[in-house]
């Protein structure tokens, strides 16, 4: 049984000036022990996909439809609020982008970890607090006992993100979903948090979904990659294959545009134009207006995500067989 199964997911938001189609037919899955990276730019639909998986979007305005949307075999579509909250935190836990605003400022760190445990397990408050201390120790916070009594504003961003990870681990979830967990942090702290997430994943064997815009974070942390653009999956495959021989023109362009890959002052390879407007996505392939390989057919029909090589899929009619072989 797969930990996460997403099949043909669509998410739209009704706004006063029309419908925003944030996710348009996304499918992927996660096996136990696997780590999956979802990479995309703002508006690609990567965060909305995972928020939909935990049903964290307000409905309405959000509207979620899918053939399958399930966590460890439990469908999350059409179930009650109470039923979904027993899955959240226990089956799938989440870590968010900005640790400074992710914790309630008026309660202590210990309280906020303990309340997560109390929501899912029959333990006393005292036991939950003792577990909170252990969890903080596990995320390598020095003097965890004292930190349980701290309020969020008394900790640095890096420490808070560690506490958030401790909180996410508190009910031993099957899947950890990390949504840009290092974007708001300093470079050196970023590296430490990524290392911590990797270590814990290796230790517990839980599934990991890492959502990020940063190709470097993907290269450093995950086994398999889903590349999203304009609400659709452009390409999926093993991380090494994606980085050494990207199939989709978007993935290729994205990799080439990363600055600082070689020494010396230089012009960068840019992708002309800007990301599609989710209120009026272009017909056909969402990348065609910026794609150097686009032909007439790309403008008319959106190519399906097809297997192009073992374990590799791409949504592009211009991916030739010889490119895959290369």
């Amino acid at each position: 049984m797969r930990l996460v199964e997403i099949e043909d997911l669509h998410v739209s938001f009704s706004q006063h000036d029309g419908l925003v189609q944030a996710v348009r037919g996304v499918s992927f899955g996660l096996d136990s022990g696997e780590s999956l990276g979802i990479v995309g730019e703002s508006g690609s639909g990567k965060s909305v996909t995972c928020a939909a998986l935990l049903r964290l979007l307000r409905e309405p305005p959000a509207k979620i439809t899918a053939k399958t949307l399930s966590l460890s075999g439990h469908s999350v579509l059409g179930i009650s609020n109470r039923a979904i909250s027993t899955l959240r935190g226990r089956v799938a836990a989440m870590v968010f982008q900005d640790p400074m605003t992710s914790l309630d400022p008026v309660f202590t760190i210990g309280h906020q970890i303990a309340e997560t445990i109390l929501a899912h397990r029959k333990v006393t408050k005292r036991e939950a607090l003792a577990q909170a201390v252990e969890l903080l120790r596990r995320v390598e916070i020095k003097n965890p006992g004292a930190v349980t009594n701290y309020y969020p504003h008394q900790l640095s961003g890096g420490m808070l993100q560690r506490a958030m990870i401790a909180m996410a681990l508190s009910c031993e979830p099957d899947v950890l979903i990390a949504d840009e967990p290092t974007t708001a942090l300093d470079v050196t702290i970023q590296a430490q948090i990524l290392q911590l997430i990797k270590d814990i994943q290796a230790e517990t064997g839980m599934g990991l979904i890492m959502i990020t815009h940063d190709l470097g974070v993907i290269a450093e942390t995950v086994d398999r990659v889903v590349v999203m653009y304009g609400g659709k999956v452009m390409e999926t495959g093993p991380v090494e294959a994606i980085f050494s021989a990207p199939l989709h023109p978007y993935t290729r362009a994205l990799l080439n545009s990363v600055p600082g890959q070689t020494a010396g002052k230089q012009r960068l390879v840019e992708i002309a134009g800007s990301s599609p407007n989710p209120s009026h996505p272009p017909a056909g392939c969402p990348f065609h207006p910026r794609c150097p390989l686009a032909v007439a057919e790309c403008r008319q029909t959106a190519p399906p995500l097809e297997t192009k090589a073992a374990g590799r899929q791409a949504a592009c009619i211009r991916v030739a067989a010889e490119m895959v072989a290369a």
Binding site: T188, Q190, A191, Q195, L215, G216, A219, E220, E240, G260
Partner: peptide
């Protein structure tokens, strides 16, 4: 050096444990 070392590397084959 610590700053430079912390920058993620774009090559999955070059993954390594960092010391902080």
């Amino acid at each position: 050096r610590a700053l430079l070392d912390a920058v993620p590397v774009l090559d999955p084959k070059a993954r390594r444990r960092r010391s902080f």
